[in-house]
Design a binder for these strands. Structure first.
Lengths: 255, 255
DNA sequence: CAAGCGTATACCGGATACGAAATACGTACA
DNA sequence: TGTACGTATTTCGTATCCGGTATACGCTTG
């Protein structure tokens, strides 16, 4: 059971034309606006407006809005349009809790599946991460951290669980981490614990390590989020803040 | 630049004209086709085709395809179109694992938050479920089961976690359960264990009960899924099932 | 002056039509 | 037989139009 997860993910067929859809560009753009706080909850987002912003037509813009609605960033008010969904620091904490649960599951499976070669690859990445941390190279640090987690997730060998994790981590701007003081050191020690669990093939120990790692990171980000919410808004006009009663059409899925 | 919404909306509730979008209809339709096995993995799904099927134009059809891509039912091959994503019985099991983790978290929080009134309401629903089971009333059974779980999820008080659960349960056709022999009885006993945990305010006991409940249900459904995969395809229309090899563009999100 | 009502406007949801680019497929040629 | 080319099909994006509805504004009335 060394290498290659059960899924047949034929990696990288060159396919040349790496042309991302315009709708994906628009999706990332609006998502960034929401996560950065430029678009606040309750704001109405119009297709033509964002089309003008990016110099595209309304068709891909509407597709982007639809995608963001599925992701939970926007809500659709039937004859009004798309409004930015509420997003609080507590929401961020909750999402990190979910991320921890899913990431923990993946880590546990990775530990169960890990072969010698996997461990070696992870350790190589880990050492590169340490080197980047020592040089204070934020970009490379972020890159290696991403690669480290990605490798673990792939080792778990479950397409759909990785997919769900991706839906959660859309709420987590990666570039944020590197700006947290003390984060590199904490990450190094956390990753060493993860490595220990994987090396010894101990799923539950690895799961616990991953959960702690994610929750810890999440608390830092959520605190920053709260701080930003407390900050005054750009102050265009004397806006009555319109804390409108959110329609919040929860469907509360069942089992 | 993006305009702010007209903040004149004077706090009047939108009355919810209850008009479902055409794109949502299309989304549900295609999702049903995929889950029922009529659309097999690798099949190319064209906007015009589904537009003709439902008597709608390509505009809402394309929005539906975009939504299904976010949900993971479809993959987008850049200049080719949308193809049905691979979906195996193991995928279903994995998704139930995720559902168990998230549902367990919600149940644990519900137990922590539960007040007397909440418990009373849950017990009322539970008794109605028992009554429906005794009458062999499948529709009402399904309805009460849904309401029971919904109530627990709402008690947890986390918008975003419920949202994530909804993304997972899109892969679980609710109407399936009631057709499983012996499921009503198993559900009643499982729910009683859940109630016990909530009544005593024991989060971890409740979490464990919910995890067991979901995993148990999932195994039944996944077995059915495997069975169907082994079966030959309906062979109704010509439709030569364009078995293009799915590229499976995993992005493997990180933390 | 305040409250109710009717009209005007804005905009969503959807339908088409059209064009450019790229891929797939069939055919002709060496 | 293998390769190159040309055509057909399709995706992706743009532009435009229309019906229906919710909101905003202004007028009338008590």
């Amino acid at each position: 059971m060394i290498r290659k997860s059960p899924q047949t993910m034929t990696s990288r067929s060159p396919r040349s034309s790496a042309r991302p859809q315009l709708s994906e560009k628009a999706t990332a753009h609006i998502r960034g606006l929401i996560m950065s706080g430029e678009l606040r909850p309750g704001t109405l987002v119009r297709p033509e407006t964002i089309g003008e912003d990016l110099g595209i037509s309304t068709t891909p813009a509407r597709e982007a809005l639809q995608a963001l609605r599925v992701e939970g960033f926007l809500e659709l008010v039937p004859r009004r349009g798309f409004v930015v969904a509420p997003l609080t620091g507590q929401d961020i904490r909750d999402l990190f809790q979910v991320q921890a649960l899913i990431g923990g599951e993946l880590a546990a499976r990775a530990a169960a599946n890990a072969g010698e070669q996997d461990v070696a690859e992870l350790e190589a990445l880990h050492h590169e991460l340490i080197a980047a941390a020592a040089r204070n190279d934020h970009d490379r640090l972020e890159e290696k951290n991403h690669a480290f987690h990605r490798e673990i997730n792939l080792m778990a060998g479950s397409r759909k669980i990785i997919w769900m994790l991706g839906l959660v981590t859309r709420y987590v701007p990666r570039q944020f981490y590197s700006s947290i003081p003390g984060w590199p050191q904490a990450t190094v020690t956390d990753h060493e614990e993860l490595l220990e669990g994987i090396r010894t093939g101990d799923p539950e120990k690895t799961r616990a390590a991953m959960v702690a790692h994610i929750i810890h990171s999440g608390e830092l980000l959520a605190a920053n989020f709260d701080e930003r919410l407390a900050a005054p808004l750009p102050a265009t006009d004397a806006e009555p803040a319109q804390e409108r009663s959110g329609p919040a059409a929860l469907d509360a899925a069942s089992a």
